[in-house]
Design a protein around this nucleic acid. Structure first.
Lengths: 137, 137
DNA sequence: ATGGACATACGAAGGTCTTAGTAGCTACTC
DNA sequence: GAGTAGCTACTAAGACCTTCGTATGTCCAT
């Protein structure tokens, strides 16, 4: 049997679907994991069939979001996309589409609405101070 | 046993789809507008059929994102969902799903990666200062 | 070898989203 | 009153997403 597995890459949507993000989140937390590992971490009321989980991970590999390595008789999946990277990409996209491309307005809405504690706010300001001083020398 | 679950509401996804956001953005900018008004504001290379635009707005009305009023022979659409509100909702969702529910980490990633100018950063810090002083009395 | 446990591959059903064509309504013009 | 222009309603095609069942393969113990 030939495992003909070399299709051409198609446009790659770059973004994770709902379920893909759910799975990727567990992989990011685990570092790596089998179908069963990921499944075990989902909410108890999630009730997703094993084969569904396997399908999802296989598709994620086709999309190059994860890679796999056969260990014994099971595949172990590992993220190819770093969480940091994906966070950045997502923020940029959101800023472009919903905040007129000005990330500052995003922060403004965040600190206005998100009910952050005062220490959280102070923490963020400290972060900015550090950032500003770093570039300032 | 009967399905006790026959709500008339279809669970309303709460979130705009890609195209719906595109249209809503124009309606937010316009305040209100007809199919033609919205269509006119899209990028010249968008090439969306008039009937497609009309369908999209009709669906958005079914989903209660907009309301309409017949003026002459055309419908004029107006947002029911405020941009601010939607921004907040989206940020909260993103924070929950991709930033462990801690908005502060979101800001951290923003100021780290987004290549903001120094004045943008200073602007944000000013915003935080104001916010902190307001609560500080 | 046979059966059982468990893993992967594939295909199909049912849903939503995007797009656009077709049909029909209304009103204005000649 | 027939034609035309512009609008809305409906329907459908095609793409993608989510879920799961079935088929198939592999390893191991009996």
């Amino acid at each position: 049997m030939m495992a003909v597995r070399s299709m051409r890459q198609k446009k790659k949507s770059e973004f994770l679907t709902e379920v893909e993000l759910e799975f990727m989140t567990e992989l990011w937390a685990l570092g790596e994991g089998s179908v069963r590992d990921v499944l075990a971490r989902l909410a108890p009321d999630r009730n997703l069939a094993y084969t569904s989980a396997a399908t999802i991970l296989r598709i994620m590999e086709q999309k190059d979001f994860v890679t796999s390595e056969k260990r014994g008789k099971t595949f172990v999946y590992r993220p190819l996309l770093a969480k940091d990277t994906y966070q950045s990409k997502t923020l940029r996209d959101l800023s472009d589409k919903l905040f007129d491309g000005t990330p500052a307005s995003m922060v403004a809405r965040l600190v206005d609405d998100q009910g952050m504690s005062e220490e959280t706010l102070a923490e963020i300001r400290a972060l900015l101070d550090r950032r500003l001083n770093d570039n300032d020398d």
